[in-house]
């Protein structure tokens, strides 16, 4: 077994929160620049210019890209041969979030209950998805998920008869209904198959894929392209004020499912994509 100290996890989680808040990933910045070059709406082009300038200012001055520094979401792959010494992985990640959000001056956006709405004042608890994999490493992928785009998520339990066209209609319909609200241009995460909760989890997980990279499955790749084209025909455009750039990419993850079911989940990510990864 390989031992990884509790404090090593705390420091890693803290660093991921702090760094990603002000450093827009290169794939998103490239996608925004490409969208700017293609944008046909003058207002849309000005908005995309402002977003690119905002990314530069945020990085240079270490200011948060967006004031909604999100709910801290972690996808962790823990090697079967790795063991955390001195505490649980969950406690370590939450401690890292607590410190990262405080020390980097990030907004604390978590309330302890959906109805009593009392702020926990340290942005915990984090949302942690843990998977066991072969090996002795721990890989931690982090995303600060904003409330505006998360609120536009949708899930449907379609029937097998709905098929490919049913999936396309549901995803395009979700983006259509979201309109200006999720801060377009967006990345559309789609989870297809599994059960109710697996579809939702896959939709979120798909948002970690590099923007602009092809889906390794050719059938899913063609599905993504068709959905993307139909979304961008909607004309919603940057910030919903009209234009070509509504979505920058569609990412689909699929999973085996029951003979009666075709679950589809849509999880939208805004252009202020705050995400980073570390392998310990």
């Amino acid at each position: 077994m390989r031992k990884i100290e509790f404090q090593t996890i705390v420091d890693a989680a803290k660093e991921l929160c702090a760094r990603s808040a002000s450093d827009l990933p290169a794939d998103m910045e490239r996608a925004l620049a490409a969208a700017r070059a293609r944008e046909i709406s003058p207002a849309g082009a000005e908005i995309l210019d402002a977003l690119l300038e905002n990314a530069r200012v945020a990085r240079d001055e270490k200011r948060p890209i967006c004031q909604d520094t999100g709910v801290a979401v972690f996808f962790i792959e823990k090697g079967a041969e790795a063991v955390v010494a001195g505490g649980t992985l969950t406690d370590a990640v939450n401690e890292g979030v607590r410190r990262g959000y405080e020390e980097a001056f990030l907004r604390k956006s978590i309330v302890r209950g959906p109805l009593d709405r009392v702020n926990t004042k340290d942005n915990t608890p984090a949302v942690i998805h843990l998977e066991e994999v072969p090996g002795d490493r721990i890989s931690i992928r982090f995303m600060a998920k904003g409330g505006g785009c998360e609120n536009m998520s949708r899930l449907a339990m379609l029937t097998p008869a709905d098929g490919r066209e049913g999936v396309i209609r549901f995803v395009v319909g979700a983006v259509d209904a979201a309109g200006a609200n999720p801060c377009p241009p967006i990345v559309v995460g789609v989870g297809m198959g599994g059960t109710f909760e697996v579809a939702a989890l896959l939709a979120k997980k798909s948002l970690f894929r590099e923007i602009g990279s092809p889906n390794p499955d050719s059938a899913l790749d063609s599905l993504e392209r068709e959905i993307l084209e139909r979304i961008n025909d909607l004309g919603i455009g940057p910030q919903g004020m009209g234009g070509a750039a509504t979505a920058l990419a569609v990412h689909v993850l699929s999973h085996p499912c029951h003979i009666a079911s075709l679950p589809v989940a849509v999880n939208i990510e805004c252009h202020a994509h705050r995400s980073a990864e570390v392998v310990l």
Partner: peptide, 12 residues
């Protein structure tokens, strides 16, 4: 409408 996600720029 202000530009959503341009929080660093707007703060100036």
């Amino acid at each position: 409408a202000a530009v959503g996600g341009a929080g660093a720029l707007i703060s100036k």
